[in-house]
């Protein structure tokens, strides 16, 4: 069969090859689990629990993916989220503030301070990477270690728990049947997608990611682009922290540390090239859904979560091998 007869399809494929892989995988995963788990998988309660679990990982993955798009990586996202979460929880538990502020004001203050912290951390990462010129792996490895240290120091390793009801509502309530975390996640996905595809500063990430020197010589201020990207990555980690602490009803150093590698996996699976320069948010959402469905399906099947971890590693390797093959062909 000649490809010409598929002219339109081919154009679509060329435009967005990853969707062509991800959407079928998404449908196959959905079908496989629905058939093998009748009455358990394809249910409102299962999808509602997926919708509650996905946003945390999802927002952190977007925070990771945008730095990978620019040709870097941000290993400090989880550490940033934990520190921001600890700061928010500390403010909400502080005696003098609790006595003087109403619940909503207290939560707002905590969130504002927490998000500002995460923005500052992202900004510092950006400065170290773009202006001093440290490789992103090392820079964020350093900030990750430092931030984890600060988190442990401030909490002495204890859990800060018992947050105000207004805070717990953010992570556990629904509006019109849609979980609030999921709404936040979708809004972020739309905003970031708009930023990446429709604004100059967002689009510059694709250019910086595919060739930093070329981008620099063609008049793009690569330093500014990277600074902005890492700052946004920090902010997103802070937003993830809000959902994280309200869902756990607590904050602690070292929460969700295993997510770090999963965010890299989800980004690569979603078509974000680890070498930078390509990747789209809609594909990332499919990738997140697939991973979350696999996790919840395996859980319902009673398969050890450790084996699921091994499976994710294998999936990542297979996906990279396939992408590599495709790259060689084209």
């Amino acid at each position: 069969m000649s490809l010409k007869s598929f002219g339109k399809v081919e154009v679509l494929y060329r435009k967005n090859p990853n969707s062509f892989v991800l959407i079928p995988i998404f449908l196959i995963t959905l079908a496989l689990f629905s058939v093998s788990l009748p009455g358990k998988f394809f249910t409102v309660s299962n999808f509602s629990s997926i919708a509650f679990q996905l946003p945390e990982l999802g927002i952190l993955t977007i925070a990771m993916a945008i730095t990978m798009l620019s040709g870097g990586i941000n290993l400090s996202i989880i550490a940033t989220a934990n520190l921001a979460g600890i700061i928010m929880a500390t403010i909400m538990k502080s005696q003098s503030l609790v006595a003087n502020l109403s619940g909503v004001n207290l939560v707002t203050l905590a969130i504002v301070v927490g998000l500002s912290t995460s923005v500052i951390i992202g900004f510092i990462n950006g400065i170290i990477i773009s202006y001093i010129g440290v490789s992103p792996i090392l820079a964020t490895l350093g900030t990750m270690t430092l931030l984890n240290g600060i988190s442990i120091l401030t909490t002495k390793g204890y859990v800060i728990s018992g947050l105000p009801d207004e805070m717990i509502a953010v992570g556990n309530n629904s509006i019109l049947g849609i979980p609030i975390p999921f709404i936040i996640f979708i809004i972020i996905a739309i905003v970031i997608n708009f930023w990446l595809r429709k604004t100059t500063s967002g689009l510059s990430n694709y250019l910086v990611g595919s060739n930093e020197n070329a981008a620099n010589y063609s008049g793009i201020n690569t330093r500014k682009v990277l600074l902005k990207t890492y700052t946004i990555s920090g902010l997103l980690s802070g937003i993830a922290a809000i959902i994280m602490i309200s869902r756990f009803n607590s904050a602690r150093a070292g929460y969700a540390e295993s997510y770090l590698l999963v965010t890299v996996l989800a980004s690569v699976f979603g078509g974000f090239d680890p070498n930078g320069g390509s990747g789209r948010i809609p594909n990332l959402i499919f990738s997140l859904f697939i991973l979350q469905m696999v996790a919840s399906g395996l859980n319902l099947l009673g398969i050890s979560s450790h084996l699921a971890g091994a499976l994710w590693g294998t999936i990542l390797i297979v996906v990279m091998l396939l992408q590599n093959k495709r790259k060689n062909e084209s």
Binding site: L261, L265, H306, L307, A310, W312, G313, L316, I317
Partner: peptide
């Protein structure tokens, strides 16, 4: 990272 997940899981 992928092989770390694989080895650790197994």
């Amino acid at each position: 990272i992928a092989t770390l997940n694989l080895f650790k899981g197994l």
